[in-house]
């Protein structure tokens, strides 16, 4: 980690504009006029919404787009030509990424970068530089500190921007970050003593008291927990929790025909959907709502840790904010353990 300088907030759009001549720039930008923010391509002249509002959809959207073409095909006589789609055409930089969202990429990497490697995902990952915004906590829903994430200097970031008065202290972390740092040079000044001090003492208000641990005994210990009955009774099955979740990564695959050719694409899917496990002959091994709710939480709290050593939750709290009945994963994990203790009594 190296402090490379102080950048004025008012210089940010100009810098991004200059960088956008060389790289594709993605940044939090206003979405509509209700104060919402989304991560999308920055064009010269745009105002960046870097700061207190969390993007509605997480960073995964730029590595696993909601709908993504896999290939095109064209047919003639008995021949079919398949042309793989190009995931991205330029190297990219994401500005203002939050620690929770960056940490989630490391979890998705476990799945998409294991053999056989998902080439489209890998290309997007390797060709993207991540500039984190040190996060002071974006709302009462935030609990990344509970799952071992450093929201100030998150692992996985190439560069970190730490907010200080009227600007940012910029630190480079990786080699990729250093390369980006050279593009920022023109907008950087030597930081003052007080600025450095503010950056050093920057802290987050993220809650550190949410307990997502599963009881000993693995899945079988909580398989029949009444937590699933309770959670599914209140769940309307809309699946918005899976849409806004930075770690959810399930998808479906579809073909479409256009004249003599067509395309195959994948799109986000959700374990909350009844068709998710429906098979062609009509059988569905997970037909009950309760079983689907259980699958979502078990996958995050029990199965994923068993395979990869970490819960598949980064404490962003988006699920609880988006959920029509405000159910948060911490609450369900609590109930899962409570019920288990009850039944052991």
């Amino acid at each position: 980690m190296t402090v490379i300088g102080y950048m004025k907030r008012s210089a940010l759009e100009g810098v991004l504009g200059d960088i956008s001549d060389k790289l594709e720039v993605i940044a939090p930008l206003p979405s509509g006029d209700k104060g919402a923010v989304e991560l999308r391509r920055f064009e010269k002249g745009a105002q960046v919404s870097i700061g207190p509002v969390k993007p509605m959809l997480p960073l995964k959207t730029i590595f696993l787009p909601p709908v993504e073409q896999i290939f095109r095909f064209s047919k003639s006589e008995n021949e079919t030509t398949v042309t793989a789609s190009t995931p991205i055409t330029r190297d990219r930089v994401v500005f203002g990424a939050l620690g929770c969202d960056i940490a989630a990429l490391a979890l998705i990497d476990e799945v998409f970068l294991r053999e056989p490697v998902d080439e489209a995902y890998r290309e997007r990952r390797t060709r993207t530089t991540i500039v984190a915004l040190a996060c002071e906590g974006q709302g009462p829903e935030c609990f990344c500190a509970s799952v071992g994430i450093d929201p100030v200097r998150p692992g996985g970031a190439d560069v970190v921007m730490i907010p200080v008065k009227d600007g940012f202290i910029v630190e480079t972390i990786t080699k990729k970050g250093e390369q980006l740092g050279t593009m920022l040079q023109g907008a950087l000044r030597d930081p003052t003593g007080p600025q450095k001090k503010t950056a050093r003492s920057f802290t987050s208000t993220s809650r550190s008291d949410v307990d997502l641990s599963a009881p000993a005994g693995g899945w079988s210990a909580v398989w029949e927990s009444e937590a699933w009955e309770d959670a599914s009774a209140r769940c309307i099955g809309c699946g918005i929790c899976t849409v806004v979740c930075p770690t959810c990564h399930c998808f479906d695959v579809h073909d479409e025909r256009h004249g003599n050719g067509g395309e195959r694409f994948r799109k986000w899917d959700s374990c909350m959907a009844v068709n998710f496990t429906m098979m062609a002959h009509g059988e569905n091994p997970r037909p009950q709502h309760r079983a689907r709710v259980r699958q979502r939480y078990m996958h995050k709290l029990v199965y994923f840790p068993e395979n990869h050593g970490a819960v598949a939750c980064v404490g962003c709290g988006r699920c609880a904010v988006a959920c029509p009945n405000r159910t948060g994963i911490g609450e369900v994990a609590d109930r899962m353990r409570e019920r288990e203790e009850d039944s052991n009594e």
Binding site: V111, W219, H249, C250, F251, D252, V253, D269, F276
Partner: peptide, 17 residues
């Protein structure tokens, strides 16, 4: 059963770990 992508990514055929 339940398979879609066939390469351990899409999540449909996940049972336990």
């Amino acid at each position: 059963m339940k398979m879609k992508c066939g390469v351990g990514k899409c999540g449909r055929c996940n049972i336990g770990a």
